[in-house]
Design a binder for these strands. Structure first.
Lengths: 114, 114
DNA sequence: TTCATTAGTTCGGGATATTAGAACTAATGA
DNA sequence: TCATTAGTTCTAATATCCCGAACTAATGAA
């Protein structure tokens, strides 16, 4: 059996939808990853998030989470050597900035309360 | 075979989560219903939404959509005779107001552009 | 007091999505 | 060349979504 590894797909800005973004954010692991990337000083590879919210994730699962964030248009993933370097897509700011900010803020507040 | 119809379940405010809300909003039908209820003068029954976005929904499907909105804590459904009267839960304003507003706004803008 | 009507729910199945282990790719560096 | 590392793909099990059919529960008319 031969596997082919395609280069990660990134949608154009016009293809990005509110529903798509909300679906991507409907999983706490994915909000967490996005919030971390959004506030981080620099881009991060996937393995940074193998342990998230005190839970160890299988890397196949983590890979899917990154794919969903990427295909929703929320993050950009660039291969750098053997790693994938992920960052938030700042082109989103114009169309979705306020919504994304409000979501991250509400989630952060919730996590503090818990 | 006997079906039992339970009275609709509404979570307490403390039980409501950001992820839950975002999952509920990850379907355009549900955003549409919520946005309509939020801007409406008065509460509305479910059947009001049998045709939504130029598409006719089976009522079993619509019933599920309402259940998901309700269990996410976004709406309140009260039986009035044979109908279910639905309205948004304004207790949410304090904790989730800005987020919900930003989502509805982003979605409205998207629909205008299309 | 039936009985038809109306509004919505539940059930059940097929389709679709999510999860995670195992096997893999692709890049690197010794 | 080959081991290592980072991530992907495959696959099968599980969960979730969708919708037609059968149902409940309330009402109002005969």
């Amino acid at each position: 059996m031969i596997l082919i590894m395609r280069t990660p797909y990134h949608p154009n800005i016009e293809e990005i939808t509110v529903e798509g973004i909300l679906h991507a954010f409907s999983d706490p692991v994915r909000i967490e990853i996005y919030a971390d990337l959004a506030t981080a000083e620099c881009a991060k590879n996937c393995s940074t998030f193998l342990t998230i919210q005190k839970r160890v994730l299988p890397k196949s699962t983590l890979s899917q989470h990154f794919r969903i964030l990427r295909e929703a248009g929320l993050i950009r993933s660039e291969r750098k050597g053997v790693e994938l370097i992920n960052s938030t897509r700042c082109e989103l700011k114009e169309r979705f900035g306020p919504m994304i900010l409000a979501i991250i803020e509400a989630y952060a507040k919730q996590q503090k309360d818990v």
